[in-house]
Write a protein that binds this DNA or RNA. Sequence first.
DNA 1: ATATCACCTCAAGTACACTTGAGGTAAAGT
DNA 2: ACTTTACCTCAAGTGTACTTGAGGTGATAT
Lengths: 137, 137
Amino acid sequence: MATYSITQVSKKYHLPVSTLRYYEDVGLLCDVDRNGKNRIYDQENLDRLDAIVCFKETGMSIAELQNFFRFQDNDDDLDDMVALLAKHCKRVDDQLALLEKNRKHIQRKFKYYSDIRQAKQNHQPMPKWEDYVLTDS
Amino acid sequence: MATYSITQVSKKYHLPVSTLRYYEDVGLLCDVDRNGKNRIYDQENLDRLDAIVCFKETGMSIAELQNFFRFQDNDDDLDDMVALLAKHCKRVDDQLALLEKNRKHIQRKFKYYSDIRQAKQNHQPMPKWEDYVLTDS
DNA sequence: ATATCACCTCAAGTACACTTGAGGTAAAGT
DNA sequence: ACTTTACCTCAAGTGTACTTGAGGTGATAT
């Protein structure tokens, strides 16, 4: 099975080498094999890294990730695991709703200022903020 | 027109009083009126706070917000303003796409572990990870 | 009268997630 | 032989965004 050096993983995941070592320090990436002192990453490590990246991108903290993997590695904690995942699902849904709401406001502002610039260039009357209704695209 | 004390604004926006003062310190909320030493927030201040909250929730840093308001308060910087907003629009779109992708992965994990728990309780065969295809809901 | 409340300032402290730097090893290229 | 490259450890430092604490003021309740 394919293995990777730390530099290769760093490039594959667009994460600094220092971050990979840091994740190991705090116990997120464990069981990384060694060739002497040098780290060797296998597919299992990368799968774990995938999870770390996904969870981090959705706003999970290091501490919660530590919990998650503790639960994952321990059959007894299945309830805690499901609870944690349910909570995180909800959080992601909330994030999505919020992001979509905010997106509209930002687009509104963007269109407004674009049109101001346009109007200035063409010496036309200035647009009015009130005319910029919140739309879906 | 309606005005608000700092505590009222704090409650209305679910932001600590200290944060409101901090935003003022770093120049995001300026022109806040005073009754003696006490801050009095008017609608204009709240509009600005709305923008701050919206931008912050979409991942804009304090430094970028400072730029944004500098551009807003300065007619010359219209190009910079439009550029900043365009950039931020794109960032929000990227966030949305990423969030939707990650959402699927997290839901997949959630379903998988929920079903494991279910199966354990009912002494049924364990589900297989491969069977949990990525879906849209 | 006094005490409690709601506010104030300003400097220092905190939490989180890394990043940097000093000093070192071990193998490969010239 | 030597130097460049690719790693390593471990402690200390950094950036961001606040938060806390000490010490104080001025109006309202008892």
